[in-house]
């Protein structure tokens, strides 16, 4: 399908704007950690829908299996036991791509069309354009993209862009037994989150809150947390994530400036040659040899 048929807000390594005239609703996934029972139905459903099979690893003394996001596991339940808030708590967080409004991966990617941000907010990897350089891994503030050993392409949660494109909800959200995962327009999700936060505050979680970090322009995957003031409790969910300044510098103004500088250096040489002219050694210099 050509570009027009899909509403793309941003395309990696493309300095000209993509077709984005239409205003479509922005979708969002809400992960309500307070309702999550860590059952990994989302991990199963994600692997099954996307035809992925993870390697059977070993148990390192944790419920988090596999141990980390991989090219085969695009979402992962991270378990953390803490007694910081008085009683024992088992904080379980569904890790995966946050689909940022200002995606670090897309900013870092050098290959045109490898990373696409649709108007509905989904940030999707198009592996056929991915060259496997891994810049996006450096660009992402949440350490999500994973390089596959088999084909050196980078993979991450696509928020089931194929299902959402035909109007279905993502596979993990449909599977979630306790409605810890909810899908809909971003406004609805924020509204739903506020209701949940009100209920949580009644149950004694004063710091319950919504995790929608402004540092990356807000995300299309948001959390409702018991302790929104200490997100690092949840297996170090970044407190206020931003695209790292190093990457900002590297991919920011330095790029066009350096390109121009190189071009002008070459041009300066040519202009110098044309004006000052070459530096020759005349014949008589030959003769004057003693």
């Amino acid at each position: 399908m050509a570009l027009q048929s899909l509403d793309i807000v941003r395309r990696s390594a493309t300095t000209t704007p993509s077709p984005q005239q239409r205003q479509t609703t922005e979708v969002a996934k809400l992960i309500d950690v307070t309702k999550c029972i860590g059952c990994k139905a989302c991990q199963s459903a994600c692997m099954e829908w996307n035809d992925l099979r993870e390697e059977v690893g070993i148990n390192e003394g944790s419920y988090t299996n596999p141990h980390d996001l991989t090219a085969n596991s695009w979402t992962l339940m991270r378990f953390a036991e803490t007694e910081e808030n008085g009683t024992l708590e088992w904080l379980i967080r569904k890790d995966g791509c946050m689909h940022c409004a200002d995606p670090g991966c897309l900013k870092a990617c050098p290959s045109p069309g490898a990373i696409i941000q649709y108007a509905n907010g989904i940030v999707d990897f198009h592996e056929e354009n991915c060259i496997g350089c891994g810049y996006c891994i450096a660009g992402c503030p949440f350490d999500i993209p994973r390089l596959s050993e088999k084909d050196s392409k980078v993979y991450k949660c696509t928020l089931c862009s194929d299902r959402v494109a035909v109007g279905l909800e993502p596979a993990c959200i449909k599977a979630c037994p306790t409605q810890a995962l909810v899908f809909g327009s971003k406004e609805d999700m924020i509204e739903h989150a506020n209701e949940r936060i009100a209920d949580l505050k009644e149950r004694g979680f004063e710091n319950a809150g919504l995790y929608d970090p402004p540092g990356v322009g807000g995300t299309h995957v948001m959390y409702v947390l018991h302790h929104a003031d200490k997100p690092e409790l949840y297996n170090d969910l970044p407190k206020d994530p931003v695209i790292s300044p190093t990457v900002g510098l590297w991919k920011g103004i330095f790029k066009p400036l350096a390109t121009a500088a190189i071009f002008f250096t070459a041009l300066a040489g040519f202009f110098h040659y044309v004006t000052v002219g070459p530096n020759e050694t005349e014949e008589e210099d030959e003769e004057k040899k003693p």
Binding site: G132, A138, T246
Partner: peptide, 22 residues
């Protein structure tokens, strides 16, 4: 990638990317 980058923490990799470009 894919040979050595994963041995280094992500901040080092970011710094390296910037330095490499400069």
């Amino acid at each position: 990638r894919p040979w050595f980058a994963h041995y280094f923490p992500i901040d080092i990799v970011r710094l390296a990317l910037l330095l490499h470009a400069v």
